[in-house]
Design a protein around this nucleic acid. Structure first.
Length: 860
RNA sequence: GCCGGUGUGGCGGAAUGGUAGACGCAGGGGAUUCAAAAUCCCCCGUUGGCAACAACGUGUGGGUUCGAGUCCCUCCACCGGCACCA
């Protein structure tokens, strides 16, 4: 018996592809181009199964497109800046640069045995000066084009470590290392004017036909277009010279129910009142905790009565109290709101807490002066009776009421209707070392001066230390010192670096000309762009993808991309995670750091430490282990399976096939040892069957026609499956075809034809095995570039089909009919069916539904 | 808290509004073997029944429809995102 050995065949074919330069992206005049891109990885140093899945999917597409005659661009690179390298520097003393490039080398070595069809000649890392220098050039062009500006913005401030923290480093409102209460503090930072594009980024979502609807919806909600009323309350006294409070509301229809005004603790008026120690203390209290919207929204709603009052715009005898409230955000609208407790749950709670009036403006019936026990929030389409309103009595809530209210206010000189977006400008400044330096200089005379492009790249200095928290660039003895590009005087560099999202916002464009001495080359970009298929995690649905869409537009405005590339990703696919069971036992290993292993009293175990028997799970010493349901593979939970080990045991084809076969690609897939074994067994079976068939004489057999028909159906189904990302369904069809091939009594000629097609259909998933079989059956050249098989349409239809017969929607019988039998003939046949006759019992059916080719339903 | 998604046998899952459970795993039975491994064949939602078959069945509760896993509403659970994790 011939045994299948992945170990022997996989390196052989990888070398063959490499020698033939099979995956080199080459522009072509006579082939259509196809650009397939998977979100590039952060070089953590360790390839995990999630990577394998992501890149296996991209590889299926890339190889399929190659076989269907495209000039394919399938590049790979590294999203290499970021916090982990600095954390490693702090904990182990390794330099971020050495750490990062070391990790890249390791991961690249782990990629090799997977047999992925990358064009490695285009590889780059975002931490290469050749890359980030071009990014600095883009920054300067964006700055010149007015797409970048400076303003104050809040950051998480650790008052003990005296450093800015990422949201991830704030745990329950405390700094992850110091444990100190985090404060929100303002810093002057650089911003991209993404909000200038709010309307366009929203409108253009409509054209993204091959994006998941959910991603478009999430982006749409994130951009958050709203229609509302902007107006001002007059302050009764004029504290600190303020005579009015500007308010934006999306619910002007509740204006008659206003019972208080609340301003953000960061509102100029609130800050102006800080001479009062009580106000200062309250504001300081509000500034505690992290900056995330989640933290702010979940915090207890608190208010401080300033004692100030404002006048209701429609009744100057009506004074409303002014509160400072922790739930009002300076970043939204005007940093001030009015509260209508009757029709908003949060305002209702606030009013109850502080004893404020609750004034209904509309009700479900005409009841007057009711006492509400909770906020009354009518459904969008509910018709309500207004007791206090703008347009009289009966009216729908929702947009009609809001527009009516805006119209009434405008007519009476109270503010105006405005359209606002929720999307905020993108702050790109980071107070960190391991990122792209922002290429500006602070000159004592000229102020903020952009660097000369001739001085790019502004390289990160290597001689830095991480012994104290904070940005090493700030305390570097010489790196900051420079000459002002404008006047030549001694000046200092900006020490902030760029958000790593900047790096990943244009790498797809750089891949089209990765060695160019300009950010892009228009001619190459015009040829390869857009990305025809982009693949990555759903966790990037909003930020990364939105930033990239903005960046492509900004790059077009500054002449770095053609107009056709302003929506850089034609099609998007978001894949699920790879998960694994978690094994936990009692026992404390002690916290290593606040985020690491050993939190609480649970000890986790790697899958290969576990022995399954009698339906339980045990360690080798017999200790029982709790099996916790599957979750995303993570180091802290130890529920990881190392691709290296799987490849060593079964080969890359098994790993690839399994991660593609077991779940739909957009859903999570659970890695199971038994599943991997079953896959290995199946691939061995395919190999064995192919070997046996290769040894057959060319002849005919009784099953020839059936086998060839099945073959054409499989070609059709697998092709459709690949094109629609139905990899798991396509693989199920390949199982079926293999089994048909084994059972068939077709002759050698037909079987050889079928097995060659089987190899071709499998080749995107299991390329090495496919090449081996192809060679075994005398296929010409590499299967990777052999033309994709085409199904004969005539082979896809059957002459007769089985129609199920339902009685009152329940299946009761079936009839076999010619595929083109007319409807009335089917009706006659159905009524003649034994089960139908019995059920009708002589009566006529109430209704007879015939869906040709599908079903018959007899309604009695 | 807000936005988005998911929920189907013991398990992963399949199913243009039209036969629910394809395909795979696990399990059971058999063939082969001195025996085992490997391989091959059959069975396999739940309940009742020897069986034919019947009833029930796609997270919960309602609705639309001749017909709902699929569409609409409610609730529950879990997952992703929430602007400095990448």
């Amino acid at each position: 018996m011939i045994l299948y050995s992945a170990k022997d065949i996989e390196p052989k074919w990888q070398a063959a592809w490499s020698d033939a330069r099979t995956f080199l992206a080459v522009r072509s005049d006579d082939k259509p181009k196809y650009y397939v891109l998977e979100m590039f990885p952060y070089p953590s140093g360790k390839l995990h199964m999630g990577h394998v899945r992501n890149y296996a999917m991209g590889d299926v597409i890339a190889r399929y497109k190659l076989a269907t005659g495209h000039a394919v661009l399938h590049p790979m690179g590294w999203d290499a800046f970021g916090m982990p390298a600095e954390n490693a520097a702090m904990t182990t003393g390794v330099h971020p640069k050495d750490y990062t490039y070391g990790n890249i080398a390791q991961m690249k070595a782990q990629f090799a045995p997977l047999g992925l069809s990358f064009d490695w000649t285009r590889e780059f890392a975002t931490c290469d000066p050749e890359y980030y220098g071009q990014q600095q050039a883009l920054f300067l062009d964006f700055l010149k084009a007015g797409l970048i500006y400076r303003k104050k913005a809040v950051v998480n401030w650790d008052p003990v470590d005296m450093t800015v923290l990422a949201n991830e480093q704030v745990i329950d409102g405390k700094g992850w290392r110091s444990g100190a209460d985090v404060e929100r503090r303002e810093l002057v930072q650089w911003f991209f004017k993404i909000s200038d594009y709010s309307g366009e980024l929203l409108a253009a979502l409509d054209g993204l036909d091959n994006w998941p609807a959910k991603v478009k919806l999430m982006q749409s909600n994130w951009i958050g277009k709203s229609r509302g009323l902007q107006f001002a309350f007059s302050l009764v006294d004029e504290p600190q010279g303020h005579d009015r409070i500007e308010v934006y509301t999306t619910r002007p229809d509740t204006l008659m129910g206003a019972s208080f005004v609340a301003i953000s603790p960061d509102h100029p008026l609130a800050k102006g009142l800080e001479d009062d120690p009580a106000v200062a203390a309250f504001n300081a209290e509000c500034r505690k905790g992290g900056t995330t919207e989640e933290a702010l929204e979940k915090a207890e709603k608190r208010g401080f009565d300033t004692g100030l009052t404002v006048l209701h715009p429609f009744d100057t005898a009506w004074e409303l109290p002014v509160y400072i409230a922790n739930f009002v955000l300076m970043d939204y609208g005007t940093g001030a709101i009015f509260g209508c407790p009757a029709h908003d749950e949060r305002d209702f709670d606030f009013a109850t807490k502080y004893g404020l009036p609750i004034i209904p403006t509309f009700l479900s019936d005409a009841e007057t002066d009711p006492v509400l026990t909770e906020a009354y929030v009518p459904a969008k389409t509910e018709v309500v009776a207004y007791v206090k309103g703008f347009a009289g009595d009966q009216m729908q809530t929702g947009n009609a009421a809001i527009e009516a209210a805006i119209g009434f206010c405008e007519a009476n000189g109270v503010g105006g209707g405005v359209t606002k977006f929720r999307l905020r400008d993108w702050g790109l400044s980071r107070q960190r070392y391991w990122g792209c330096p922002i290429p500006v200089v602070h000159c004592p005379d000229c102020g903020v001066v952009p660097e000369d492009k001739a001085n790019l790249p502004i390289e990160l200095p290597y001689d830095v230390t991480f012994d104290v928290p904070g940005n090493p660039l700030d305390r570097h003895p010489t790196w900051r010192d420079c000459a002002c590009p404008k006047c030549g005087a001694a000046a200092q560099r900006e020490t902030d670096t760029m958000d790593t999202f900047v790096d990943s916002s244009w790498y797809y464009a750089r891949f089209t000309a990765p060695r160019a001495t300009t950010p892009t080359v228009l001619d190459d970009a015009a040829y390869w762009m857009n990305v025809d298929q982009y693949i990555g995690g759903i966790e990037h649905a909003i930020l990364h993808l939105l930033y990239s869409r903005f960046f492509a537009r900004a790059m077009h405005v500054t002449g770095h991309l053609p107009e056709m590339a302003i929506e850089p990703f034609n099609a998007l696919f978001t894949q699920g995670m790879v998960t694994h069971e978690i094994y936990a036992s009692e026992g404390r290993t002690g916290p290593i750091d606040p985020r690491g292993e050993g939190i609480g009293f649970t000890k986790y175990h790697f899958p290969d430490e576990i022995i399954r028997r009698d339906g339980g799970a045990y360690l080798s010493d017999g200790t029982a282990v709790e099996v916790i349901s599957s979750a995303k593979m993570s180091k802290s939970k130890k529920n990881v399976v190392d691709p290296d080990a799987i490849i060593a045991q079964y080969g890359a084809d098994t790993a690839r096939w399994f991660v593609l076969s077991d779940s739909p690609p957009e859903r999570d897939v659970e890695w199971t040892a038994s599943g991997a074994e079953a896959t290995a067994r199946h691939l061995a079976r395919v190999y064995r069957v192919a070997s046996e068939i290769a040894a057959m004489d060319d002849g005919t057999g009784a099953g020839d026609a059936d086998l060839i028909r099945t073959m054409h159906k499989t070609i059709h189904e697998v092709t459709l499956g690949i094109e629609s990302f139905g990899f798991n369904a396509a693989i199920a069809k390949l199982y079926g075809f293999t089994s048909a091939l084994m059972k068939s009594d077709a002759g050698g000629a037909a079987k050889k034809q079928a097995v060659r097609v089987l190899a071709q259909l499998m080749s995107p998933m299991t390329p090495h095995l496919a090449e081996e079989i192809w060679a075994m059956l005398g296929g010409t050249g590499l299967i990777a570039v052999a033309p994709w098989p085409v199904a004969d349409p005539a082979m896809l239809t059957e002459d007769t089909i089985t129609l199920p017969i339902q009685i009152n929607g329940k299946r009761r019988s079936e009839i076999a009919v010619p595929v083109d039998m007319p409807k009335d003939a089917i009706e006659k046949l159905a009524l003649a069916d034994e089960a139908v006759i019995k059920a009708l019992n002589g009566a006529a059916p109430k209704k007879l539904i015939v869906v040709p080719g599908r079903i018959v339903n007899v309604v009695i």
